[in-house]
Design a protein around this nucleic acid. Structure first.
Length: 794
DNA sequence: ACCTTCGGGATTTTT
DNA sequence: TCCCGAAGGT
């Protein structure tokens, strides 16, 4: 029986090697250096434990040591420990650290992995029990990525004759994902949701699930959902897994959704040894179904739970922690932690306002050059690898990329499109998938006309019709189309070629004498896929070929194509090689779990951060999640954090003025150093936030002309450098749509409340007007040309 | 069947 | 502004 077979449940005593190592409670080298709560978290093994671990408090250390302790003391064999993470990276890190703690003698932990990868392993065992009637999953099921998922949904929407413009597949995908995250099968979707997606949401969901079964496929959400329904419908099987997992550990518990919560609770009901680690203040995935409530409710879910707080921070200075703590204090319903540190006070969090997003990027670029050159005595010379820029939304990255390219500052974008999400990788994967399983219709559809084979919609329809009539997959349908000459023209010969080739490849996949790496190469070459990119003259073509090479190379680490496909579907992530010294740019979400000595937090403007959409969609909950995001951002910094905001920002090609983020005002003043001109912020942050964006911009221009602006450190530096800022600039907004609203810059207008004013800028239908009371942004409809004061439009 | 043009929409995204 | 999907021309 295989090592991780659930039906083989023989318990194991501590291995000989463990006993030979002389591991006893008195001799536990891996415990060295743990602080008291960490130690408690490691030693309190039985019963439910909630480890509330603030940012930088060594939770991974506690978690891995706990696992090492379980193994070393013989409380559980590695195979009896279930350790769940959200990301492959986290799983990999844990694996490495456990191995380091225990030395090379310990065998791998088969059940350390992501929710999804563990679910796949479980599901493959019981696939036949998923589904109904004669339609059920087979153990060889494929896992669809989001791309496949959307294509499938689009087909279903079209089949229902629904207007795709009004009811986009994306929205349906989001809806279905949401239901799956909440562990809702079509039958269980609450009545309140029945109006969703033009009242057809549930029906489409049902159709989608059925179609997936027909394709012998599951999507990401299904991995969890199927496991939960499997456990609920088959207590005997649940029992097997409950018995197997004597100890359960969960990382980032604050990010679990309902499905994951049920999954865990079902499994933990066996031995009840569940240890969840998390930080309610770092819950930032509510929009994806994560329920902070899970962690807030832990003690009532698991009565008698031991709660352990890790509060000693080993990462950041007291100044940074003070700023972060002060900010997060505005959130309600927290479990509450007080982070403390023994580190030196350090530098306060710096705050600076800029004229616009380009100035912000320029300034940060210069700061980084300074840090890199070591011209700041207080900071010392820094590697670019020590520096990160954390943004709220990925479109903010562009300003930095543009600027850094201009000044030749090396940077890397972390996150972004994943390797396996690239077009060429997906295409190649589809070829491999079809070669491995000729029944994979989605793969067939994807590549049958890539490269172009003269097979358009009509040809594909012919194939589909034929396949449906035969009750066979598309590849077989295509074979039949060829055999019966149902298709004319150039496409016919090409299709024959394609079908024959795929047949050969499939035979080769089954032939153990054929090397799978060479086979993969041959598949891409002989189908003309490689040639397609070689002939492509677009600038990205060479990169794509490079990626394909990388893909084939990655195959070497696997025994066969099947194993590789499974890996890529779930596990393959882009490796960010740290070999090159470069500044890291990423979203705040991508930054969770990372740390950098120097962190820049640009774009703290209301509407961008906190994001307007979060607040519109989720109100106070949304705002609190945004605040947690800010907290996550600040706590990434070890020695220096710099927050900035811009008075004007280009969004979708339009210049928009903006106010500093409300989070700026929430920062505790005693931990902040304001770098912006003293006149602007002399009255504290409140004054800054009360200014409209346009006020801010105008004030900036005013100040630029006066001497005292150069007295603040930030401005002094910029001035000495001859920064462009010295030239007063006109907001680009002025240029845009100047005619569209019937006003132009310079016009005098009257407003019912603010009186007469002069238009200083126009962006769409929003006018920036200088009134006696100051600058205001006003919709064009609320003002009229001064002079004619007959009717007021409201 | 394939290429060009036009219009609408546009966060965050561990798997 | 930029990207994607749909429509219309060749």
């Amino acid at each position: 029986m295989s090592d991780d077979d659930p039906f083989e449940l023989a318990e194991r005593k501590p291995s000989l090697s463990q006993r030979a190592m002389g591991v006893t409670m008195q001799n536990l080298p891996y415990m060295d250096g743990l602080n008291a709560p960490q130690r408690r978290a490691v030693e309190h093994l039985d019963g439910p434990v909630l480890m509330l671990a603030g940012a930088g408090t060594g939770k991974t250390r506690a978690l891995t040591t706990r696992i090492a302790h379980l193994i070393a003391t013989g409380r559980a064999a590695p195979r009896q420990i279930l350790a769940v993470t959200f990301t492959n990276k986290a799983a990999r890190e844990m694996r490495e650290r456990i191995a380091r703690l225990l030395g090379e003698t310990v065998e791998g932990m088969p059940w350390l992995g992501t929710f999804h990868s563990i679910s796949v392993k479980i599901l493959r065992r019981h696939a036949e029990l998923i589904g109904a009637d004669h339609l059920h999953l087979k153990p060889s099921f494929t896992i669809l990525d989001t791309d496949d998922q959307l294509r499938l949904l689009r087909q279903l929407i079209q089949a229902e004759n629904i207007d795709e413009k009004r009811w986009p597949a994306r929205q349906l995908a989001g809806l279905i994902d949401g239901w799956k995250n909440s562990a809702l099968t079509p039958d269980r979707v609450p009545r309140a949701d029945s109006a969703a997606f033009d009242s057809r949401g549930v029906a489409l969901y049902r159709a989608y699930q059925r179609r997936l079964l027909e394709l012998n496929a599951v999507d990401f959400g299904d991995l969890l959902l199927h496991c939960v329904t499997l456990f609920q419908a088959h207590p005997d099987i649940l029992k097997l897994w409950q018995d197997r997992f004597r100890y359960i550990l969960v990382d980032e518990y604050q990010d679990t959704n309902v499905a994951q919560y049920l999954w865990l609770r079902l499994l933990a009901q066996g031995h009840r040894n569940i240890c969840c680690v998390g930080d309610d203040d770092q819950s930032i995935y509510g929009w994806r179904g994560a329920e902070v409530g899970n962690i807030l409710r832990f003690e009532s879910d698991f009565p008698g739970a031991q709660v352990i707080r890790l509060e000693q921070n080993y990462r950041s200075t007291p100044q940074i922690l003070g700023a972060a703590s002060g900010l997060i204090a505005a959130n309600k319903g927290r479990l509450g932690k007080t982070l403390w540190t023994e580190a030196e006070a350090g530098h306060p969090v710096r705050l600076i306002g800029h004229w616009d997003s380009e100035a912000e990027a320029r300034w940060i670029g210069e700061e980084i050059e300074d840090f890199h050159a070591g011209t700041r005595r207080s900071i010392g010379r820094r590697e670019l690898n020590d520096i990160a820029i954390l943004v709220r939304a990925s479109h903010q990255m562009r300003a930095f990329e543009d600027r850094f390219l201009t000044i030749g500052l090396p940077y890397r974008v972390i996150g972004g499109p994943r390797f396996y999400e690239r077009q060429e990788i997906r295409d190649a994967m589809a070829y491999f998938r079809l070669a491995v399983s000729p029944t994979d219709d989605l793969a067939f559809e994807r590549i049958v006309n890539t490269p172009k084979r003269g097979l358009g919609d009509k040809a594909v329809q012919t194939i589909q019709t034929e396949a449906r009539q035969l009750g066979q997959p598309l590849l077989i349908g295509a074979q039949s189309v060829v055999a019966n000459a149902l298709l004319g023209g150039k496409g016919a010969a090409k299709l024959r070629e394609f079908v024959d080739a795929m047949g050969r490849f499939h035979a080769d996949v089954l032939d153990s004498r054929v090397n799978h790496v060479e086979l993969a190469e041959r598949i891409l070459d002989e189908t003309g896929y490689t040639a397609m990119w070689q002939n492509d003259k677009s600038p990205e073509a060479p990169g794509r070929l490079e990626n394909l090479k990388e893909l084939v190379k990655a195959l070497e680490e696997f025994d066969n194509l099947q194993g590789f496909l499974e890996h890529v579907a779930l596990v393959m992530d882009r490796d960010n090689d740290e070999a090159q010294d470069a500044v890291s740019i990423m979203t705040l979400h991508a930054a969770k779990g990372l740390e950098y000595p120097i962190v820049f937090l640009p774009g703290w403007e209301d509407g961008l951060f906190p994001s307007q959409r979060s607040m519109d969609e989720s109100g106070m909950k949304g705002l609190e999640e945004e605040r947690r995001l800010a907290y996550v951002g600040l706590t990434r910094a070890e020695t220096l954090a710099t927050i900035s905001f811009a008075g004007n920002r280009r969004m979708y090609g339009q210049w928009q003025s903006s106010l500093p983020s409300r989070f700026v005002d929430e920062l505790p003043e005693e931990h902040v150093e304001v770098l912006t001109a003293p006149g602007l912020y002399g009255q504290g942050f409140g004054a800054a936030a009360m200014m409209g964006g346009a006020d801010f911009g105008a004030a900036m221009q005013d100040r630029a002309a006066t001497a005292d602006v150069y007295n603040s450190p930030g401005w002094k530096r910029m001035a000495s450098r001859g920064d462009q800022r010295a030239k007063p600039r006109t907001p680009a907004a002025v240029v845009i749509d100047a005619e569209a609203v019937g006003f132009s810059v310079g016009d005098t207008v009257t407003h019912a409340k603010f009186g007469d004013g002069t238009i200083m800028g126009i962006a769409e239908d929003t006018l920036t007007i200088q009134f006696e009371a100051g600058f205001k942004n006003v919709k064009a409809g609320y003002v009229q040309p001064a002079g004619g004061v007959d009717d007021v439009p409201f």
